[in-house]
Design a protein around this nucleic acid. Structure first.
Lengths: 339, 339
DNA sequence: ATGAAAGCGCTAACAT
DNA sequence: ATGTTAGCGCTTTCAT
């Protein structure tokens, strides 16, 4: 809704004494424009303070120069760091970012995806989406550029950036085992997310590799949120034979578990050990500092943006998957179990 | 750039057996449509999976349902928390957010503002902008909805959300004085920002009120960034008679100062005290935890978004200013000066 | 209450 | 190399 009249290419055309299609060609970087004409047009545009109307450009078939970014929430630093990485990469390009926060509301992913495909943006970056609706198939069928960050689709036909979740979870569990723990609880993540599935798998594999049996009761369902993490921790703590260590599928859950443990009258790491996943800034706040599996969040965002930019520049690039490595960050929340 | 054909209001019109203007009226919530017609149209739209094309709507004179958010950077949690607040408020509305990061590049604010006024969004939220170009006047003249967050324009004719910077800075300085410090250094912020000016003023006023004389040499110029904060701290530390306490205009500078102080072989708070401003999450990370002035960042974002939403709903609301209070958060980075 | 017609600002054939 | 002609999908008069 431009309030007052902004100059259009018609105004420039009149000012420069050419047709408006010549103006359009000049402004959209078309090659075959006589140098003298180009200069006239540019001078006129400059004189009038011309600013292109993106909506009109896009409607007429041009690009919107916008990239849609779909995120579940802004309340987890894990997300904001990824966004930061995306933004740092887009800054180098001519694209701007349009942000959609789903708050994990049923159907919002599909709704936003549809709006984006329908002209709102030229491409879509999906951060840890649920993909419960079949909108991904539509994106693919329409050949609309998109990339998944920290999520994978079962069909394996999407360009995606992930970390080695299973290995990370394996190492976290292994670390606890090597410290001497035999009863290790796991606070699982949102089961619709591939990362949650792989982390559970890594946990199980480590137990198996070290000859420890897997007990269903030691797995408490979380959802990657504080509140669920808190409840899950309580559940584990109230077991007849509670675990001596807990591995939480993300830092948010781990920090909530920290609180539950404290309320339970137990001390970390003296009475119980705790490991998280992500390494968000808050992980190293407070006592004790959280031992966790670091994910290169900023880099994940950057890589995702880079992939989408490449796809935009060259529509025929094939589907790709990038897998980044995690790293065990040892801080103060783990110790050998009590004798 | 919708890749394949999405259904348009023409398709719906054909399906429902009405004219496309009737479809448009129905879909854009026009009142005078016969109930039976409305139902037919809605059914057809639903059947075809219709999704409105925002670009076309906006171009034809409707709203874009987008709010532009202009920020200097995403590298400072101070900003991401404000964005989070904005997003939480917009989530309740039908507006989405389009993010522009200037990275403090010369002229980008004006360029983005022009693009936004020219149809890219219905309103503009400016987070700590430089306002060095006269684009604010244009926004005002055009009666384009905008609000400033953590910045004020000299003419005082903009709706804005701020904190009581001067009072906050006063209290920080006062706290150091009451601890017994007499030589208090100040790491200033970006002088184009009102917050930087007010914080300096608060620092000076506290000195004056407590009978301490102001020394230009104890003020080191920063820019609210880590690198400038580091240099400024070094400068203060290298003085012949260095300060026994430093007040940094924001946490980012304070944390950089922490590093400079450590490299200088001094300990905090034993050898020198340090106070920051903002209370970003990182402020309470590491040793020692930073004593700082908390700003209600999330709330500032929410209030800014709320003001713009009100303005959008009612174009005739008058210019308003909201001033939020700061709070001194005492942690571990201050102590009385050495005897 | 609804249809017909115009036009928002621009890009992209199609001409020449 | 440049002008002419159609739209893109929608809102909004202006009719009826």
């Amino acid at each position: 809704m431009p309030v007052n009249k902004m100059p259009t290419i018609y105004d420039i055309a009149k000012e420069a004494g050419v047709s408006y299609s010549t103006v359009s060609r000049t402004l959209s970087g078309f090659e075959f424009v006589k140098e003298s004409t180009r200069e006239k047009v540019l001078a006129a545009a400059n004189k009038l303070g011309y600013v292109p109307n993106q909506q009109a450009r896009s409607l007429a078939g041009g690009p919107s120069n916008l990239i849609g970014v779909l995120v579940p929430t802004l309340a987890n630093d894990y997300i904001t760091q990824i966004i930061h990485g995306i933004d740092d990469e887009l800054t180098k390009s001519s694209y701007n970012l349009i942000l959609y926060t789903t708050n994990r509301h049923q159907g919002k992913e599909a709704t936003y995806a549809a709006a984006i495909m329908n002209g709102a943006a030229d491409a879509l970056l999906l951060v840890a989406p649920l993909i419960s609706d079949p909108y991904l198939d539509v994106l693919r069928e329409q050949n609309f550029p998109y990339v998944l960050i920290d999520q994978a689709d079962q069909s394996d036909q999407s360009t995606a950036v992930n970390t080695n979740n299973q290995k990370g979870a394996y190492e976290a569990t292994q670390y606890l085992i090597q410290l001497g723990h035999r009863r290790i609880g796991f606070i699982a993540g949102l089961p619709q997310l591939n990362s949650a599935i792989e982390r559970l798998a890594g946990y199980k594999k480590a137990l198996a590799d070290y000859g420890l049996s897997f007990h269903e009761t030691y797995v408490a369902q979380g959802r990657f949120t504080s509140s669920y993490g808190y409840t899950a921790a309580k559940q584990l703590l109230n077991l007849a034979t509670p675990p001596t260590a807990i591995f939480a599928a993300n830092d948010l859950s781990a920090m909530a578990a920290m609180e539950a443990i404290r309320e339970h009258g137990l001390r970390i790491p003296d009475d119980i050990s705790l490991v998280g996943f992500d390494d968000v800034p808050q992980a190293s706040i407070g006592y004790p500092k959280l031992t966790t599996i670091r994910q290169p969040l900023h880099q994940m965002g950057q890589d995702g943006a880079r992939l989408i930019l490449e796809r935009l520049a060259n529509p025929s690039v094939e589907v790709r998957r990038i897998t980044l490595e995690t790293e065990l960050i040892i801080r103060d929340s783990c110790a050998p179990p009590r004798a």
